[in-house]
Simulated assay, not measured.
Amino acid sequence: MSKISELTEGKWPKTSIIEALQAHGIKKSDTPIPSKPKYGYKVENGELVLCEKEQKIIKLILELHAQGNSLRKIARILNEKKIKGKYGGLWDKSVISTIIKRETKQEE
């Protein structure tokens, strides 16, 4: 809000901006859409939605982990299968660890 006020050289005080937004039924999102969504998600029409292709890879990661494979081995398997990371890069154990932690936390 303060940035808008600065850009308009104070011609629109913060309270006027808030009142205008409320009058038009525009609400501030409680959870802003990230510019770089986490693996397994994508932004579509301004909404954060599941990415089915990436969700299948997450399922594979969880299956490999459940089979007792190490994080490093899971990364190696994905790289050998030429499965690219979110932005086209190679997999490493830290990304695998983050995905497993996030997914197992969601299941609780």
Rank of each mutant, 00 (worst) to 15 (best):
I33F: 01
I33H: 09
I33T: 09
P34D: 03
P34T: 02
K36M: 10
K36A: 07
P37K: 00
P37W: 00
P37V: 00
K38N: 14
K38V: 07
Y39G: 07
Y39R: 01
G40Q: 05
G40M: 00
G40L: 00
V43Y: 05
V43H: 02
E44W: 11
E44R: 11
G46F: 00
L48M: 08
L48H: 02
L48K: 11
L48E: 08
L48R: 10
V49S: 05
V49F: 00
L50S: 14
L50W: 09
L50C: 12
C51H: 09
C51T: 02
C51F: 07
E52M: 08
E52V: 04
E52Y: 03
K53D: 14
K53I: 13
K53Q: 15
K53F: 11
E54S: 03
E54Y: 01
I57Y: 03
I57T: 14
I58P: 03
I58T: 04
I58S: 02
K59H: 14
K59W: 02
L60N: 10
I61T: 09
I61G: 04
I61P: 08
I61K: 01
L62N: 02
L62C: 04
E63K: 12
E63L: 13
E63A: 11
E63F: 12
E63D: 13
E63V: 06
L64N: 08
L64H: 09
L64C: 01
H65W: 15
H65N: 15
H65M: 07
A66H: 12
A66Y: 10
A66K: 14
Q67F: 06
Q67N: 13
Q67L: 13
Q67V: 07
G68Q: 05
G68N: 05
G68T: 01
G68P: 07
N69W: 00
N69L: 12
N69K: 14
N69C: 08
S70V: 06
S70E: 10
S70D: 08
S70Y: 02
R72C: 05
R72D: 12
R72K: 15
R72M: 07
K73A: 14
I74Y: 04
I74F: 04
I74W: 01
I74M: 01
A75V: 05
A75I: 03
A75H: 00
R76W: 12
R76M: 13
R76L: 15
I77Q: 10
I77H: 08
I77C: 06
L78K: 02
N79C: 08
N79R: 09
E80R: 11
E80Q: 13
E80G: 05
K81W: 05
K81V: 09
K81P: 03
K82M: 04
I83P: 05
I83N: 04
I83S: 04
